Amino acid sequence: LGLPKMEVFQEYYGLPPPPGAIGPFLRLNPGDIVELTKAEAEQNWWEGRNTSTNEIGWFPCNRVKPY
């Protein structure tokens, strides 16, 4: 089972920042694999864990694709 995984195809370094105070941003590099921890199809921002860095944070969902 486990959490859904997504592959990063466009880098994200915190700009634009996540809206409001939902949480810290998650740095993404192309090729990184992100395990989704909070993701809803109608939301533009998802939370996940970058398996390369083990960091957890928020990122724009348009930077990832199904793994």
Results as ranks from 00 to 15, higher is better:
1 L>R: 15
1 L>K: 15
1 L>S: 15
2 G>F: 14
3 L>K: 10
3 L>F: 13
3 L>G: 07
3 L>N: 09
4 P>E: 14
4 P>W: 13
4 P>G: 15
4 P>D: 15
4 P>K: 15
5 K>F: 07
5 K>P: 05
5 K>S: 09
5 K>D: 08
6 M>T: 07
6 M>D: 01
6 M>A: 05
7 E>Y: 12
7 E>R: 10
8 V>D: 00
9 F>T: 12
9 F>R: 08
9 F>S: 09
10 Q>M: 11
10 Q>A: 05
10 Q>W: 07
10 Q>E: 14
10 Q>F: 12
11 E>N: 07
11 E>P: 08
11 E>D: 07
11 E>K: 10
11 E>S: 08
12 Y>C: 03
12 Y>I: 02
12 Y>M: 01
12 Y>Q: 00
12 Y>G: 02
13 Y>E: 11
13 Y>G: 11
14 G>W: 03
15 L>S: 12
15 L>P: 00
15 L>N: 15
15 L>A: 14
15 L>C: 10
15 L>Q: 15
16 P>H: 01
16 P>Y: 00
16 P>I: 02
17 P>R: 04
17 P>C: 07
17 P>F: 06
17 P>T: 13
18 P>G: 02
19 P>H: 04
19 P>W: 02
19 P>G: 05
20 G>N: 06
20 G>Q: 13
21 A>S: 07
21 A>K: 08
22 I>F: 13
22 I>Q: 11
23 G>I: 03
23 G>T: 12
23 G>E: 15
24 P>I: 07
24 P>W: 03
24 P>A: 08
25 F>I: 12
25 F>N: 04
25 F>R: 07
25 F>M: 11
26 L>R: 00
27 R>Q: 14
27 R>Y: 09
28 L>F: 07
28 L>D: 04
28 L>P: 02
28 L>C: 06
28 L>R: 03
29 N>S: 08
29 N>H: 14
29 N>Q: 05
30 P>G: 10
30 P>C: 14
30 P>W: 06
30 P>H: 15
31 G>I: 02
31 G>M: 05
31 G>F: 05
32 D>A: 04
32 D>V: 03
32 D>P: 01
33 I>N: 03
33 I>V: 13
33 I>L: 13
34 V>Q: 01
34 V>N: 02
35 E>W: 05
35 E>D: 14
35 E>N: 05
35 E>G: 03
35 E>H: 09
35 E>T: 10
35 E>M: 08
36 L>Q: 00
36 L>P: 13
36 L>T: 11
36 L>K: 03
37 T>I: 14
37 T>K: 11
37 T>G: 05
37 T>C: 08
37 T>A: 06
37 T>Y: 07
37 T>D: 04
37 T>H: 14
38 K>A: 09
38 K>W: 07
38 K>D: 07
39 A>I: 05
39 A>K: 12
39 A>V: 12
40 E>F: 05
40 E>Q: 10
41 A>V: 14
41 A>W: 14
41 A>K: 13
42 E>F: 08
42 E>L: 10
42 E>P: 13
42 E>D: 13
43 Q>V: 13
43 Q>N: 09
44 N>R: 11
44 N>I: 10
44 N>S: 15
45 W>K: 01
45 W>L: 02
45 W>R: 02
45 W>S: 01
46 W>F: 05
46 W>V: 11
46 W>K: 04
47 E>I: 04
47 E>T: 04
48 G>H: 00
48 G>L: 01
48 G>I: 01
49 R>D: 02
50 N>K: 07
50 N>F: 00
50 N>A: 02
51 T>L: 14
51 T>R: 11
51 T>W: 06
51 T>Y: 06
52 S>H: 05
52 S>F: 10
52 S>I: 09
53 T>R: 08
54 N>R: 08
54 N>K: 08
54 N>T: 05
55 E>I: 11
55 E>W: 03
55 E>N: 12
55 E>A: 12
55 E>Q: 13
56 I>E: 05
56 I>D: 09
56 I>Q: 08
57 G>E: 00
57 G>R: 00
57 G>Q: 01
58 W>N: 00
58 W>I: 04
59 F>K: 00
59 F>I: 02
59 F>R: 01
59 F>Y: 02
59 F>S: 02
59 F>P: 03
60 P>T: 00
60 P>C: 01
60 P>A: 00
61 C>E: 13
62 N>C: 08
62 N>P: 03
62 N>A: 11
64 V>K: 01
64 V>S: 02
65 K>E: 08
65 K>I: 09
65 K>G: 11
66 P>Q: 15
66 P>D: 09
66 P>A: 10
66 P>S: 09
67 Y>I: 10
67 Y>D: 11
67 Y>C: 15
